[in-house]
């Protein structure tokens, strides 16, 4: 596959990251050719989008319904006080285009569910799962596995963050880990913006590695950290042979 050339402006914009070993201009051209779906655009997804836009991922599709509220702003790096009451997705897209006009930003002013997720997943190369409800995360996971697209699932609670990379047929999927939709998870949760940003930044780097094809992705492991204790650990995870979503899939 041939990847699009970089313009002089892009050469300049991305100069410092193209110095990264194993990434270089080839990696940058791969990012330019790539597309990512992010749902939703909260403290985690918004920061993933910011890093992917500034890094030069060619096309971002952002999904999130509803208007920005004042109590979103402790963790929203893409939105400002003046945006309260306006559609959050438009505020996010405007800021991303300001940050990097060379990236195509598409907005979906709805949340993903089983009725629409397949359509949006089919339009991209990779999915970032950052929704506050398991039903949405599981819907994204099933669509990504069905379409054999990688998915990076990033979540936080309190001062903790977790990350899982799903590579269909090679690693566990979310249905392997959660055989039932977790019944105790609540839509509203304690959150500092810095904790959401931390897991988002790690997720963004994982996405960049997967798209550009360098480094070692987080395969068959779950990354977990607790900033209250300043502890980081990885847990070895395995595919479930009877997983209804990926159990029959081969690598």
């Amino acid at each position: 596959m041939t990847y699009p050339a970089l313009t002089p402006a892009e050469q300049s914009r991305y100069e410092w990251q193209m110095w990264v070993r194993d990434f270089g201009e080839t990696g940058q051209r791969r990012l330019k050719a790539a597309s990512v779906l992010i749902s939703r655009i909260g403290g985690v997804g918004g920061t993933v989008a910011m890093h992917l836009a500034t890094a030069g991922v060619g096309r971002l599709v952002l999904a999130h319904a509803g208007d920005l509220r004042l109590n979103d702003l402790n963790r929203q790096l893409l939105m400002s006080t003046a945006d309260v009451g306006s559609p959050r997705i438009e505020s996010a897209a405007r800021r991303l285009r300001e940050l990097n006009p060379q990236v195509v930003v598409e907005t979906v002013n709805e949340n993903l569910d089983v009725s629409n997720v397949g359509r949006y997943v089919s339009q991209v190369d990779l999915v970032v799962s950052a929704a506050p409800l398991f039903v949405e995360r599981l819907a994204m996971n099933r669509a990504a596995v069905r379409q054999r697209k990688p998915l990076v699932d990033c979540a936080m609670y309190d001062l903790e963050g977790r990350l899982i990379t799903v590579r269909p047929g090679r690693t566990p999927c979310l249905d392997c880990l959660y055989p039932e939709s977790p019944p105790l998870w609540k839509r509203e949760f304690p959150v500092f913006g810095a904790v959401a940003s931390t897991v988002a930044s790690i997720a963004a780097m994982e996405v960049i590695k997967l798209l550009a094809g360098f480094g070692k992705p987080l395969e068959n492991q779950l990354l977990s950290y607790d900033l209250r204790e300043m502890s980081f650990q990885t847990i070895a995870i395995a595919r479930r042979p009877d997983c209804p979503t990926c159990g029959q899939l081969s690598a």
Binding site: C154, A155, P182, L184, W185
Partner: peptide, 10 residues
Amino acid sequence: VTLMPPIAGG
């Protein structure tokens, strides 16, 4: 032994 309830903060 690590006990990890599911989380989905986004």
